[in-house]
Design a protein around this nucleic acid. Structure first.
Length: 570
RNA sequence: UGGCGAGUGGCCUAAUUGGCAAGGCACCUGACUCUGGAUCAGGGGAUUGAAGGUUCGAGUCCUUCCUCGCCAGCCA
């Protein structure tokens, strides 16, 4: 495994979570000589940020304790799984910064071994072929309060089950005709122990084994045994598998497996203002609420990537959230903090005006222009600087001007002087309006003595604005993103999940004007539009038709003040 | 209803296993600033789900109760 920057935990700055403590103790007390973990996705959908928690946990532990982490596709249900997902999952994993070396496995690699073990179980009288239908099996299973009833086939001789199981594999029976069940205890308080199904008949094309099989092991029969085959020491999964652990252990105990893995469960990640359910995400895509699986509003890895979130920020976020057994919902603000933290350090600064207002600098010579030296990142001198053209006609942000400035508004207003970042101080001398009274242009004068942004007399404007030269700017479409759901807990209190969708989750700004160098930002790179936020080129972007996604806004004290003002009035 | 699991400031997570409840996010204030960003300094906010009990001392141990989550797929 490899990460660009060690997480706080990897650096040892942070105490480990309960799983890391177990791992450390197992090593310290000699129960284990080495650590092997695995990330076991089912290739039936795309990875999302919830998976990132599991990925960072499994690969993180392996890295910290000198072990290794396998990537194993849990491909036991050919009805749902596709090669497309396998490829996407691998790509997302690599992007997140992890590497499994040669340890790429598939549960389907073990189908032959799994089948042999099932035969062993039958011979030992610990499994039997059941002819009951799915409905009948459910009826026999009982309820939480009543014990189940034994299937009439439970006492079937091993030889007969053996013969039937072989014929199931040979394809003699249709889907659902029979199953192989473990013989455990139909009265067990844990329903997972009431003779769970181990194999079912599925005449389906498997993405890897094709038509070689028509019986497939269930999750319960495949997972632990796959762990044992690979020598997994700590099989880490989410809380909903807790009730399966007794069955996991029963199978390991009753099969001649080569190693003894243990299962540990932690609470899955939940985030406010979004939803991490493959089912719901699929609906969002299919019903056209988003642009696709990689829509910048989606919590999928591909969505976060398209949104401009750096992998490092996601890893930091996961480290920040921690690992425990308490069901919890993390505020999305924490993710945003982690992302801003990385971007502030790494993102190159640029100028772009989203809602342009024309400024004419009256005392600046017509037809003249000059190159202003602008730092690429004040947080990082090594990022260097660039030249940005300045001229008589400029665009500034409409929000940066107020004809009648309210209290605490520091920006441009009639008669007021502000600094144009890395350029000159300008003073607004006149306001030009159209027939409707809308401000369409500002007339200003500049002070030639302030070239570069400093005044010889030491005077300091209260505001610094970003700007672009009208003659040199390039047009761009900018897509502004906000929470996908307006409610922190979508669908809570009986509401319909889809009624909680945020109608303003995407705002397309067609007429933005950007510094020309923005045409050269490579895909996958996120830059800062000074004073506005972080933005990245969208895959829809093309030469001459630039499209940027807003990753996140900057923290904005003024916007907060305004929002509070609005609240006070309301 | 049976089984299993979990309850610590608004959110997430700690507490050297019985010794002054700590940190991050969020929030507020101030300093600084060529991004109203960043940074720095400070602040408010917790009868640790409840009630009993053991103890010099309980978030931690015991009892009872409450709340929430998961489990009755031939999904994972």
């Amino acid at each position: 495994m490899s990460t660009e920057t060690p997480s706080p935990i990897e650096r040892g700055d942070q105490r480990g979570d309960f799983i890391r403590e177990i791992v450390a103790a197992d090593l310290r007390e000699g129960r284990r000589e080495g650590i092997v973990t695995r990330f076991p996705p089912e290739p039936n959908g795309y990875l999302h940020i919830g998976h990132a928690k599991s990925i960072c946990l499994n690969f993180g532990i392996a890295g910290e304790f000198g072990g290794r982490c396998h990537l194993r596709f849990d491909d036991t249900n050919p009805m749902k799984e596709e090669q497309e997902y396998i490829d996407a999952i691998e790509a997302d994993l690599r992007w997140l910064g992890f590497d499994w070396g040669e340890h790429l496995y598939y549960a389907s690699d073990y189908f032959e071994q799994l089948y042999d073990w099932a035969v062993d179980l039958i011979k030992a009288g610990k499994a039997y072929v059941d002819d009951l239908s799915a409905d009948e099996i459910r009826e026999h299973r009982g309820t939480f309060t009543e014990a189940g009833r034994e299937s009439p086939w439970r006492g079937r001789p091993a030889e007969e089950s053996l013969d039937l199981f072989a014929r199931m594999r040979a394809g003699e029976f249709p889907d659902g005709a029979r199953v192989l069940r473990a013989r455990i205890d139909m009265a067990a308080p844990n329903i997972n122990l009431r003779d769970p199904v181990l194999y079912r008949i599925l005449h389906a094309e498997h993405p890897r084994t094709g038509g070689a099989w028509c019986v497939y092991p269930t999750y319960d029969f495949a997972h632990g045994q796959s762990d044992a085959i690979e020598g997994i020491t700590h099989s880490i999964c989410t809380l909903e598998f807790e009730a399966h652990r007794p069955l996991y252990d029963w199978l390991i105990d009753n099969l001649p497996v080569p190693s003894r893995p243990h299962q540990y469960e932690f609470a899955r990640l939940n985030l406010t203002h979004t939803v991490l359910s493959k089912r719901v995400l699929l609906r969002l895509v299919n019903e056209g609420h988003v642009r696709g699986w990689d829509d910048p509003r989606m919590p999928t890895m591909s969505g976060l990537r398209r949104r401009g979130f750096p992998a490092e920020g996601i890893r930091d976020f996961v480290a920040m959230v921690g690992v425990a057994k308490t069901d919890s919902v993390v505020e999305t603000g924490m993710l945003e903090h982690a992302v801003r933290n990385v971007l502030n350090r790494t993102a190159s600064r640029r100028f772009a005006v989203l809602d342009p207002l024309k400024v004419v600098v009256e005392n600046y010579p017509e037809g003249q222009s000059e190159e202003m030296e602008v730092p690429n990142n004040p947080e990082d001198q090594s990022a260097g600087s660039r030249k940005v053209p300045f001229s008589r006609e400029l665009w500034i942000e409409r929000d940066d001007f107020m004809e009648e400035p309210v209290r605490k508004f520091f920006r441009l207003a009639p008669g007021r002087e502000v600094r144009l970042r890395s350029a000159y101080f300008v003073t607004c001398t006149d306001v030009v309006k159209d027939a409707d009274g809308r401000v369409v242009e500002l007339r200003c004068t500049y002070d030639p003595e302030t070239r570069g942004g400093d005044a010889p007399d030491g005077r300091r404007p209260k505001a610094t604005l970003h700007w672009v030269s009208a003659a040199h700017a390039v047009p761009a479409e900018v897509r502004l993103y906000d929470y996908l759901f307006r409610e922190a807990y979508p669908g809570a209190d009986g509401r319909d999940l889809f009624d909680d969708l945020n109608p303003d989750s995407e705002t397309v700004v067609a007429g933005a004007l950007a510094e020309a160098s923005l045409a050269d930002v490579p895909a996958g790179e996120t830059v800062q539009f000074e004073r506005l936020g972080y933005f990245c080129p969208d895959p829809d972007s093309a030469p001459g038709a630039l499209v940027f996604n807003r990753t996140l806004t900057l923290r904005d004290t003024w916007a907060k003040l305004q929002a509070q003002g609005r609240q006070d009035k309301a």
